[in-house]
Computed example of a mutant assay.
Amino acid sequence: MTSNLRRALMATATGLCMLATGTAFAQDFPSKAVTIIVPYQAGGGTDAIARPLASKLSKKWGQPVVVENRPGANGMIATQTAIRSEPDGHTILYHLTGIIQNPLLLKNVAYDPMKDVIPVFQIGGQALALTVPRSSAVNSLDQLVTDGKSKGDRGLIYGTVGVGHSSHIWSELLASERKFKATHAAYKGTVPLVIDLVSGRLDWAFIAPNEALIRTNDNTLKALTVTGTKRVKQLPGVATMHELGYPGFEMVGWHGLFVPAGTPATVVNKIEVDVREAMGDPEIQKILDTQVVDYTGYGSAEFGKVMRNDSAGWAALFKRFNIQIN
């Protein structure tokens, strides 16, 4: 037997062994309880989706699927907990866009989202709605820009839920592109932000679409436009910024599931397939509608492309506006 033939046979045997091992992993998975780690407090929007999803998966897999809330450090405690877990599929991380924004925004982040996790399934996207007080004389995005320019150095005041949040970036981009002065007011949470917006102490704010839906229905705020490439289903009369001639606001936040790097591809595929089936349940689709999350259902490969593209997009915007948190 020649050395080349021997090497070829050994490579084939190794490949078959790896394939058999991966198949065995998938057949055995899950062999114990599965934990879905959520980086936010119990009772929030992510919880509202994660818990019924866990229930559906538990019935499918015949094993307990437990939701574990690990809030803190801008989602990094949960992320690092998931990354350090055994890469066998029994620990799943439910995260938002912050998983790729944190390393771009914060110094000394102890993980790389492109290397330390595997994207499994993108649940859906969530645009932001640019809203103004109901009492405001402004009724369109163009009018808001005109108002900003008319105020000169005094400018307008916009609110966000924190430095580096998507609402901060979009507000800075709007003022920069349309050349009017705007002052940033950062709040610790949506509740105080909305209180000041409704009262008229703020001129505008980009807020989550579910909050915008509530506030437009109770006539306390007006939604002028939304980010993203398509209109929000629950706000059909509100055009996208792109439709209104304001390009550059196409990225949206998203909800997604991840597993630690090193998880066998066959296990990743099984989770993806079973999550897709669970997400198709009318009960969960109704919850997504309530949370105003636009279901996408992207699998691992497509979700990975979204992550890479969005990471590059956010990096460019953070650099442009010199936004970083020490």
Rank of each mutant, 00 (worst) to 15 (best):
V259Y: 08
T290P: 02
T216G: 01
T240I: 05
G124Y: 15
I100Q: 05
V232H: 11
T160C: 05
S150N: 13
L141G: 13
T296C: 08
A182R: 06
Y298T: 00
A315W: 00
L96I: 06
T190S: 09
I157Q: 04
K179E: 12
V191L: 09
A185Q: 09
A48T: 14
V292M: 03
Q63V: 03
T131W: 00
M18P: 04
S171G: 15
A129N: 11
S150I: 01
E86P: 07
G152C: 12
V293Y: 15
T46N: 07
V65E: 12
G313K: 11
I287G: 06
A205Q: 07
A212C: 11
S55G: 10
L57Y: 09
D294P: 00
L53Q: 12
L202V: 05
I325R: 08
A137E: 06
N309Q: 07
S55L: 10
I49D: 04
V232N: 07
P39M: 02
P103R: 00
V268Y: 11
L197A: 11
E177I: 01
H165G: 02
V268R: 12
A137M: 04
R231D: 01
V38R: 01
N326L: 11
S166V: 10
I271N: 06
S135E: 02
V238T: 15
K179A: 15
K179C: 09
T266H: 09
G155P: 04
K60F: 11
T23Q: 04
A205D: 13
P192L: 07
I118P: 00
A82R: 04
V161Q: 03
M307C: 02
I77D: 06
K60Y: 14
A208H: 14
R6G: 03
R178K: 14
T14P: 01
E86D: 05
A265S: 13
G297Y: 06
L173W: 12
W254N: 11
Q80N: 08
R201T: 04
V238R: 04
A239F: 08
T97Q: 12
V232C: 10
G72W: 13
K32W: 00
I37P: 01
Q285T: 06
D196R: 00
V109G: 02
Y40G: 05
D112R: 02
D112G: 01
P103M: 01
F249W: 02
N108R: 02
D203R: 05
R134F: 13
Y94H: 13
P71G: 10
S166E: 05
A312S: 09
F303C: 03
R178V: 03
A265F: 09
T263F: 13
W204I: 02
